[in-house]
Design a protein around this nucleic acid. Structure first.
Lengths: 153, 153
DNA sequence: TATGAAAGTTTTAAATA
DNA sequence: TATTTAAAACTTTCATA
């Protein structure tokens, strides 16, 4: 970790998350500081890895990604080489937006964004041809109720 | 939708997603164009809603959000007023980072980020006191294997 | 689409609390 | 050690060709 944050750092992070296009002057005014300290703190938090990336969020549906699946995976294989292959497969497939290893009965969950159900099937067939999995359940999203990258600081 | 995209638009979006801190000149050079057309296209894509938000992505664990749960929810209630209450509850809880209404057996899935298991329980108790749900299964993430906001354009 | 100039922003450095 | 001031370098924005 190495970076310890105070109230001012947190306020700056709130603003950066809320609108990453604000100028240093604007942020400084809102958090009650001035340009240079804000700039120095942002630089430190970048270097410390607290701030991972600056990006633009796009509208998936408007860009033709009209289907979103949550995929629950159970596997019988648990050895290191299987796991390495599986992880690499997930990282190599850009339609996988999230992948978590879970505690309990279900071993992995994926969030997969694709154009349509057919594109999901193509992804699924590719995945099971690359790695052996025991059981796969796909949950199809009908409606995105909420989606945010904001952490409640 | 209204906005139709060509190859150049897509290349610009790839760059904006990859690194939202690049200057217009840099982006123009990479996509093989010049400043003004790139600027005009970004403006149009913003206005058209293709570009939703500019933001900074933070390291959840470094900021003390050490637990991530996927929550599967089944409900017996399907009337409009129950749904409105439930949706509002999800939107009001900042620990809910994602919420989808699903097709099939399970009605909703949530992604919930909290400090620890106790904080999850606090969230869970609050939620079930606000709305009636039939069955809740929480899947605890042991490891985030992949997490990206990038759409593969 | 390209050029370029005005306005605004980031970044660095030096001075100050 | 952190903040303020100030100035140079760079970027965005927009008018005009």
């Amino acid at each position: 970790m190495a970076v310890r944050l105070d109230e001012l750092d947190r306020k700056i992070l709130v603003q950066l998350q809320k609108d990453g296009g604000q100028s240093l002057d604007e942020i400084a005014r809102i958090v009650g500081s001035s340009k240079t300290p804000v700039w120095n703190r942002i630089r430190k938090m970048r270097e410390g890895g607290i701030i991972k990336q600056q990006t633009f969020l796009l509208d998936a549906e408007a860009l033709g990604f009209e289907a979103c699946f949550f995929v629950l995976i159970r596997t019988s294989e648990h050895d290191a080489s299987w796991q390495a292959t599986f992880l690499q497969a997930l990282r190599d497939h850009p339609e996988v937006q999230e992948a978590h290893r879970l505690a309990g009965d279900i071993d992995y969950i994926l969030k997969v964004r694709v154009a349509n159900a057919r594109a999901y099937d193509t992804f699924y067939q590719a995945l099971i041809s690359e790695v052996k999995v025991h059981n796969v359940t796909a949950l199809l999203s009908m409606e995105e109720i909420k989606s945010t990258t904001m952490l409640p600081l």
